[in-house]
Design a protein around this nucleic acid. Sequence first.
DNA 1: TGCCCGATTAACT
DNA 2: GTTAATCGGGCAA
Length: 191
Amino acid sequence: MPKRLTKSFFNRSVHEVAPDLIGATLLVNGVGGRLVEVEAYHHTEPAAHSFRGPTERNAVMFGPAGYAYVYRSYGIHWCLNFVCEPKGSASAVLIRAIEPTAGLAAMRRRRGVADERLLCSGPGRLCEALGVTVKHNGLALDAPPFELLARQGDVDVVAGPRIGITKAAELPWRYGEKGSRFLSKPFRPEA
DNA sequence: TGCCCGATTAACT
DNA sequence: GTTAATCGGGCAA
């Protein structure tokens, strides 16, 4: 049986947690799949929401590890993050894409598309498919409606530049499963 | 108070 | 390849 991820899993450097999340299973009310793409954010670099200090929106990032940080993007979409590191470091992992494995019918209904590869390949898309909204902001990741299971076996993890940002875009803090067909965008082929 | 911009997506040309 | 949709944070005035 897969091991359930607890708060101690997240209470480490965001750069250890992020690659370890690839291949793990995320379920929200039983709907979800395998994580295939995430990005790390840290308050010391300007692309992070926490860079300029605590606000009403990012308050959860400044709390303890193992909680969900959900924010509205471009006034339209929701984006899901996992808070990492000891309290106060204000770092988090953005969940960018999952490979759907559970609750496909619910995902198709919420998303209004049939193609598996369009259900969860992007931070806004996967939140819509899993029903994640601001109501989930601040909720613990080791209790319902969330369920997180450690990966089983080996996963080929690759890293590259983050997507959709202009600040600190050169940092290779995007992690994904090599060759996955469910990435929001492919990783550049390795040298 | 007003203005600009963003960790996005889908529908255009 | 380009652009609208849509809204809160951050900064200037």
